[in-house]
């Protein structure tokens, strides 16, 4: 599968998914008009990756703002990585801006719904 590389816009995130390297990064703002439609191909990409995953997978989320409808879709994606973690190494980084307490707490909440330990980075 080709690299999935989306430039950020005023309300859509920057996406870099590279199944060859096992890297999955989403950053900036996620405020799509329709979160389900926007995340569908991303989740499909991850599903595809799970068929022949790398030994180590690196996931990085770093949101400025995320709408609750996007949070739902991100959770759906995280649960896929949570499955993968049963037999491969997965590092899930939840990055947030210095002082962005809301974003840290959102990450902490999502972490509770998985069997993973998120790596929290204040950057």
């Amino acid at each position: 599968m080709a690299i999935l590389d989306l430039q950020a816009t005023e309300d859509l995130p920057c996406v870099l998914f590279d199944n060859d390297k096992g890297i999955f990064e989403i950053s900036k703002r996620s405020l799509p008009e329709n979160a389900i439609l926007f995340y569908e191909p991303l989740i499909e990409y991850v599903n595809e990756y799970l068929r022949s995953p790398k030994e180590e997978t690196n996931v990085v989320f770093h949101f400025d703002y995320i709408s609750t409808s996007s949070t739902k879709q991100i959770m759906k994606m995280i649960l896929l990585f949570d499955q993968l973690k049963q037999n491969k190494k997965v590092n899930l980084n939840w990055n947030y801006d210095k002082g962005d307490v809301d974003m840290l707490q959102t990450g902490k909440r999502l972490e509770q719904l998985t069997s993973m330990k998120f790596i929290f980075n204040e950057v």
């Binding site: 329709n34 979160a35 389900i36 609750t68 949070t71 739902k72 879709q73 959770m75 909440r109 719904l113």
Partner: peptide, 22 residues
């Protein structure tokens, strides 16, 4: 919040109540 986020992810109604909780 945790219960609501796990609720049917593909529901057509986008937020499904998570907005007010948030």
């Amino acid at each position: 919040y945790l219960e609501t986020i796990m609720l049917d992810h593909n529901e057509v109604k986008q937020g499904a109540g998570l907005g007010f909780i948030d």
